[in-house]
Amino acid sequence: MTEKKPFKIAIASGKGGTGKTLLSTNLAAYLSQTRSTLLVDLDVEEPNDFIFIKGTLESVSDQYKMIPEWGEDKCTLCGICSNVCKYHAVVQLGTFIAVFKELCHSCYACSELCPELALPMQKHKIGELSKRSDGHLTFIESRLEICEEQAVPLIHQTHNLVDEDYNKIPFQLFDCPPGTSCPVIAAAKNTDYVILVTESTPFGLNDLKLAVETISKLGKPLGVIINRHGIGNNDVESYCAHNQIPVLAKIPFDRQIAKCYSKGELVYAKVEHVETSLRQIIKYLDETHGNHE
């Protein structure tokens, strides 16, 4: 083996607002005190990590998806393009070919199957990637443009870029979007371990079950962190115990945490039990990673 592969951890949840961002930013900042760490905000629709991670802005780059652009002069209106497009993104309207960029999946079929090469693929901006540095912490934010609907291409591109440029950072955290649909899958697919952050309420449990099913289908090992522990009931703990899902930490319900969060502050330096939880999580992850190598 020439180089050690980085350990990639996805921080996800079914339900939104359970503490993904809180955990991602605090874990990343705490880890970076002692080792080189990468934090990537993949909640591209609503990225929030930047509120908590300061650091110096080093670069911003535009991100694109490729969409076909109609070249009227070359087009013979043969109809192949609108016929091949399964997404109704390329439609022939009389003597005009309309391209609906929000429906396009960038499959290239229309462009490459056009006999006249009248639909060359062109760049279309879908978001921005920014890089910040703070000591041992490198922070990448991926941000979707307002009114761009597809989060998945941007998430894929961000993963590719991280693979290419940051392969030397051994510990990598990916803050994922909420839910269980395509954006979460795109975000978690390229990682080694998934942490699901939940809360001990009926909504938390319902969405945790969905998230566990999704992540299991991806074949990823996973662990749960119960946030705001103490509110609601014990059903989440029973569920985890019954299904042999490891609970990495229980972070108690504490208004102090919510207050710090509301002001955009990291909490571990202010609330001692959060630091204890972070240490537990890191210990668990180190052991797990050791076993997987």
Binding site: E46, N48, I51, I146, C147, A258, Y261, S262, K263, G264
Partner: peptide, 20 residues
């Protein structure tokens, strides 16, 4: 929404979509 920096940031983004 909720009175957190994240809450307001996300509110602004979703409102921009609604305005369209």
């Amino acid at each position: 929404t909720e009175p957190t920096l994240s809450g307001l940031h996300d509110l602004k983004r979703v409102h921009a979509v609604i305005s369209r």
